[in-house]
Design a protein around this nucleic acid. Structure first.
Length: 493
RNA sequence: CGGGGCGUAGCGCAGUCCGGUAGCGCAACGGCUUUGGGAGCCGUGGGUCGCAGGUUCAAAUCCUGUCGCCCCGACCA
């Protein structure tokens, strides 16, 4: 069996190896696109289920807007065009024509089917949605609108990486409309907090919440907020964003409402999203040289039972016990798999389920049966525990809780250890050029040109201006001017 | 789009410099023995050598073109 490259040898190759070995995804015939395999899709389904439930608890409803967007829509919001025009796929024809060339049948776009107005494949849906909101909103009684959609989008990237940046990806995009500026801002921050909760409590991925700088703001937003996580190679990854769109889209699409009192005004907007990219970060935060590691709360399979036997009699007894255990566990912890394949030995099965990231393994052989107990083995730290049958549900539940917490603690500790207070340009360049990188908490003057220069010199960008930070003024780490306080610099994905 | 690397069996690779008609490990299939950390032995099947041209008696190997993947840039989040 093919081995997995060690993280220390080649991080990027390790990442690809883990995806292949855990059967999360495969390359597609189309450049830059990926096939998400059942093991990978199960993770995404759990992400969807958990987030969707939470969104609905917060009053949101789901809807679906079309994949194709009239080209003219994109042009309506000046900054938005600027941000996305360069990476749009365009539909120009609606029919193919068979032609024969050198005796071979080929298909070409039928010149007679050229579209009068061309369509773009959505890179995001603000424009279609706001075109519809114009029709749906007349008065303050129509507000707020709190719509979310689960969809695919396309951004024609030059360089792609599995999950992290693919030409087509899956995501949810929330689009809300409000009567007041404050309501819009509150919604933006509430959704950012939702993402923080999801990343930390469900994915066991510690994040830094904060405001994006003007340079990094979403095209068309007044303010963009993000959660930023640290990967095991010390690079940062933006795990989700939430945008306060102000009245920019309302103005571009002429969406006005009649307030209870006073004159007609433009409505206030937000949008927020999390994509399949989060699966990439999940892989990179927790996994090790043996393969995928997943926190129990998001794993498709929570536990696998490996029955061990020699004779047919033992097989029957052990498998029956495994069925009983699984039946007890499933209603409490969720999916439990029994691996009773008889063509593989237990050792093979152990390593296979380890590669695939199942958080907990239950080993059940004749010795366990005799002792009326089962052996638990945790994926992430290899800890063994023997639990009596009588306590198995509580024991497994406790172990899953411990794994979840441990993964968070481990990731948090790594983030803390690799976050440095940096006070000079020498230290700054040393960190990113000679040392291991990580997060640099450094003073910044607030100037975008200065920020860009730092990026050009070191590849480090301002990930965000953290909510919780040292606001004491100082000297900008690069230009020496008075700072707005410390911000997080890091090299990012 | 620029620089570098790589495409040979399901996976990982050797063979390419120096042309002679394709091999190794794992996996698969059959059999026997096995089964508490990647089982052993015997046997079997599987590849238009990324694709298309060209040179040659002969091309995985040399030449040209092309497609794809990976890394570094540019681009993007």
């Amino acid at each position: 069996m093919a081995d997995i490259t060690k993280r220390s040898e080649d991080y990027s190759r390790w990442y690809q190896d883990v995806i292949r070995e855990a059967e999360l995804a495969d390359n597609s015939p189309v450049r830059g696109c990926m096939v998400i395999r059942p093991n990978g899709y199960a993770i995404w389904e759990n992400i969807q289920a958990t987030l969707d439930k939470r969104f609905k608890e917060l009053g949101h409803v789901n809807a679906y807007f079309p994949l194709l967007i009239p080209k003219s829509f994109l042009a309506k919001e000046a900054e938005h065009v600027d941000g996305f025009a360069k990476e749009c796929a365009i539909v120009t024809h609606h029919r193919l024509k068979q032609v024969t060339r050198d005796g071979k049948v080929d298909l070409i776009p039928d010149p007679d089917s050229k579209l009068e107005e061309e369509y773009i494949i959505r890179p995001t849906s603000e424009t279609v949605i706001w075109d519809m909101y114009r029709k749906w909103i007349q008065s303050y009684r129509d507000l707020p609108i709190l719509i979310n959609q689960w969809a695919n989008v396309m951004r024609w990237e030059m360089r792609t990486r599995m999950f992290l940046r693919t030409t087509e990806f899956l995501w949810q995009e929330g689009h809300t409309a409000h009567a007041t500026e404050k309501e819009g801002r509150d919604e933006t921050l509430q959704m950012l907090e939702t993402y923080r909760w999801f990343a930390e409590d469900i994915l066991a991925m510690p994040v830094i919440t904060g405001t994006k700088t003007a340079n990094e703001r979403f095209a068309g937003a007044v303010e963009t907020f993000s959660i930023e996580a640290m990967m095991q190679d010390n690079k940062a990854l933006q795990a989700a964003t939430s945008h306060d769109l102000g009245q920019n889209f309302a103005k571009a699409f002429d969406v006005k409402y009649q307030p209870a009192e006073g004159k007609v005004d433009y409505v206030w907007a937000t949008s927020w999203g999390m994509s399949t990219r989060i699966v990439g970060s999940l892989i990179m935060v927790h996994s090790d040289d043996d393969g995928l590691v997943l926190p129990p709360k998001i794993a498709g399979t929570k536990a696998v039972i490996v029955p061990i036997w020699k004779s047919d009699e033992e097989k029957a007894a052990v498998c029956e016990a495994a069925q009983k255990l699984a039946a007890e566990l499933r209603p409490v912890i969720g999916p439990v798999h029994i691996d009773d394949r008889d063509n593989l030995r237990p050792g093979w099965k152990y390593s296979e389920w380890e590669r695939k990231g199942v958080p907990l393994r239950l080993e059940l052989g004749p010795r366990d049966l005799a002792g009326e107990s089962v052996m638990l083995k945790a994926r992430h730290d290899r800890a063994k525990n023997i639990v009596p049958f009588a306590d198995v549900v509580a024991g497994v539940q406790a172990e899953l809780d411990r794994i979840q917490q441990d993964l968070y603690d481990r990731a948090k500790q790594r983030m803390v250890e690799n976050t440095h207070v940096i006070d000079s340009w020498d230290q700054f360049t040393d960190l990113f050029e000679n040392k291991d990188g990580g997060f640099a908490m450094a003073h910044w003057c607030g100037d975008g040109t200065c920020e860009q220069t730092v990026q050009d010199k070191t590849k480090a960008t301002i990930r965000n201006i953290p909510f919780e930070r040292d606001e004491t003024k100082g000297e900008c780490v690069h230009c020496g001017n008075e700072s707005i306080g410390r911000v997080v610099f890091a090299q990012g994905y």
